[in-house]
C-alpha cells in the first residue's frame, strides 16, 4: 500500500516537473524548418556536408545553404523546398561511389589466411590484411556496413561492388575504407579503371590478373578520355570528359570496365 502511494506521488511530482520544464524551457519548433526537414530523406548520411538532415534544414532556413545539396531526397523535393523558402535550387552534379579494385578471389591472390575480426579496418592491423596486392580490396565489408542505403555488396568472390542505381553519393564509405579504394565520381561516367596499384605492370599482374598493367592501350585508342597517371603504371579516366562504354573492350585485363 505504502509502495503504491509512493509510486503515485513520485509519478505525479515527476510529471508536474516535466510539464513545467517543457513550459519554461521548451523551444518552439520552427514550422518552416519542420516542413523543410520532412522534405529531406531522413537518412542522416551527411552527403550534404551538414551534420545530418536537421543540420541541413537549419542551414536552409537560415539562408546559409541552398536546396539541391541532398542527394538522397525524392525527385521534386528540392523544388518544393525552394518554393517554400523562396530561393532557387542549386543542383549538385550527381555522384556515385566506385570501388577502384577488380581483384576478387578469382583474380587476385591472398598471402595468408586471415581469420581475425571481420572488418577491413581490423584486418589492416594484422599484416595489412594479407592480400598480395597491397592496394587490393579486402572484401570484409567495412564500406558495406557504413552505407546507410545498402548500396554496397560484397560479392561471392569477396570484392566490394557499388550498386550505382542505389548509391546516392553521400561519401560515407569513402572514409570507411582503410585501403582508400573508394572515390566519388560523376554519375555520368560509364566505365572506370578499377585499379589503384601504381607499381610496375608485371609485378602487380603476378598478384592480380585484373590489375591495370599500364599498357596504355586505352590511352592510345582514346587519348581525350583516358590518361596515364604520371609516375605510375596506371591509367585513369578523365572525369571531365568520360569515355564511352565501348572503350572497355580494348583493355586486356578488364581493369577498365563498368
Amino acid at each position: 500500500m505504502v509502495t503504491l502511494v509512493i509510486i503515485v506521488v513520485v509519478g505525479l511530482l515527476t510529471g508536474i516537473a516535466i510539464a513545467l520544464v517543457s513550459r519554461w524551457f521548451g523551444v518552439e519548433p520552427n514550422p518552416v524548418e519542420e516542413e523543410v526537414r520532412n522534405l529531406l530523406s531522413g537518412a542522416n548520411c551527411g552527403g550534404c556536408g551538414f551534420p545530418g538532415c536537421a543540420g541541413y534544414a537549419k542551414a536552409l532556413v537560415a539562408g546559409a545553404a541552398k536546396p539541391g545539396a541532398c542527394s538522397s531526397q525524392c525527385a521534386g523535393a528540392a523544388e518544393k523546398m525552394a518554393k517554400l523558402l523562396g530561393v532557387a535550387v542549386v543542383h549538385k552534379e550527381p555522384k556515385v561511389a566506385v570501388v577502384f579494385c577488380s581483384g576478387d578471389d578469382m583474380k587476385a591472390t591472398r598471402q595468408a589466411l586471415y581469420n581475425g575480426i571481420n572488418d577491413c579496418r581490423d584486418a589492416m592491423i594484422v599484416a595489412a590484411g594479407a592480400k598480395t596486392c597491397a592496394y587490393g580490396c579486402l572484401g570484409l565489408g567495412a564500406c558495406a556496413r557504413v552505407c546507410p542505403f545498402g548500396a554496397i555488396e560484397i560479392n561471392e568472390h569477396r570484392l566490394a561492388v557499388v550498386h550505382k542505381e542505389i548509391c546516392v553519393g553521400c561519401g560515407k564509405c569513402v572514409g570507411a575504407c582503410p585501403k582508400k579504394l573508394i572515390k566519388l565520381v560523376p554519375k555520368s561516367a560509364e566505365i572506370h579503371v578499377h585499379c589503384m596499384n601504381p607499381v610496375r605492370g608485371p609485378e602487380k599482374f603476378k598478384a592480380c590478373k585484373a590489375a591495370c598493367i599500364g599498357c596504355g592501350k586505352c590511352v592510345k585508342t582514346a587519348p581525350e578520355h583516358v590518361k596515364l597517371v604520371p609516375g605510375a603504371a596506371l591509367a585513369e579516366v578523365d572525369y571531365g570528359n568520360p569515355p564511352p562504354e565501348a572503350l572497355a573492350e580494348v583493355c586486356p585485363t578488364h581493369a577498365l570496365r563498368k
Partner: peptide, 12 residues
C-alpha cells in the same frame, strides 16, 4: 575473444 586486436584498433 581477439582482445588485443580490438585494443589496437581502438588505439589507432
Amino acid at each position: 575473444r581477439p582482445l588485443v586486436q580490438h585494443m589496437r584498433r581502438a588505439k589507432s
